[in-house]
Design a binder for these strands. Structure first.
Lengths: 198, 198
DNA sequence: CCTGATCTGTCAGTCTCTGCCACTTGTGGC
DNA sequence: GCCACAAGTGGCAGAGACTGACAGATCAGG
């Protein structure tokens, strides 16, 4: 994503800008009226393009909120593989997620708004689930490699899914509180709930 | 559901039968051609009713596969509240899910087919997620009551979501294997993955 | 048999999403 | 500066899921 001065770049720049603008306008409308009460036609009108073009930038209405899942998933995976192999698996996962949350360049208010809208609409929760499944596919083999004993595949899947659940709960809680607590703090707390012994 | 000879019951019986028939036919079609490649019109034609009637029995196409989530969720909740209050929370949850899986009157082949179709389609996974959220809303307050210390709400949520993830993973694995292992066995194993210390 | 409630089908309409085609606009070569 | 080509855009038509309204059919109970 975002090459360094790609040949013929002005067009790509314009495209990215339009894409960001659609996403921004859509999020505002969703936050105000609710996802289901806003039509693609309204978004298009607010941005100043045709409904057809909105669908060219975003295959589905939900994608205006979710964004690009694959990129962040690979980021988490890279963090996880970089962890020392003798580290407890839960610590490694927690650290990987923390690195993601600590990534700069993320607008706090915008992020909260996105999470709020996301949590309040079934269609968006569904898209978020697909993102999690994508992440799980990336993380599970790595986790399985670090386990001993039988049934590593199943156990790795359980661990990854459970950790993703914690991640989600932490972000949801973070979106609902008013900046009183950091997302990292909430993430650690939800992770801690699964390990009363640690 | 299914009262004992409800007054004016013949109509209710017919209704339940038609409902079951639609669900059965739809599941077969989905399993053969894929969920997205089967239209409501085709299901209606195969059953012998109008498309409008199919939507009368099932608000959404996905509901023909998922069935009634609320009923089973309440069943699990009842199991959980009946557990001794000094039992470790994970044991109580495991036992509650086990009781659900052990419920008789569930066609094994039909169940596997439903889980197989469910796992292979995004729209159905989404509906399944909504079921889980419904269950989570029922179970979380009960779990929170059994916890000590701070942040019981968040911790209870993490525990419930993680346990539901285990439940789902076990059922998915069960649907993919060929009757070699019982669903209860797989459930215990996935639960065990989260408690290496126990 | 008749009355009223329930069930069903048909029709029209909304909304998301997808091809298709024509038109405009920016890009690069000459 | 001009021109061919690619990329972006808009309008149109259509599929498919779902909803509301209306009219006819069906069945329980008096």
């Amino acid at each position: 994503m975002s090459e360094v001065t790609k040949p013929g770049g002005t067009r790509a720049i314009a495209r990215d800008a339009v894409r960001a603008r659609i996403s921004e306008v859509a999020l505002d409308l969703f936050d105000e009226h609710g996802f289901d009460n806003v039509t693609v036609e309204q978004i298009a009108a607010a941005v100043g393009v045709s409904p057809r073009s909105v669908h060219r930038y975003f295959p589905a209405k939900e994608d205006t909120v979710i964004g690009d899942p694959a990129g962040w998933g690979e980021h988490v995976r890279d963090q996880l593989v970089a962890r020392p192999s003798d580290e407890p698996i839960w610590d490694a996962l927690l650290a990987s997620y923390e690195a993601l949350l600590a990534t700069p360049g993320r607008n706090e208010a915008q992020g909260r708004k996105a999470m709020r809208v996301l949590g309040s609409t079934a269609a968006l929760r569904a898209r978020n689930l697909e993102k999690h499944l994508l992440w799980a596919h990336l993380l599970t083999p790595i986790v399985a490699e670090r386990l001993d004993g039988d049934h590593r595949g199943l156990r790795a899947e359980a661990i990854v899914q459970a950790s993703l659940a914690c991640f989600d709960i932490a972000l949801t809680a973070w979106a609902e509180t008013d900046a009183e607590e950091s997302s990292v703090e909430l993430l650690r707390r939800s992770f801690g709930a699964l390990q009363p012994t640690a």
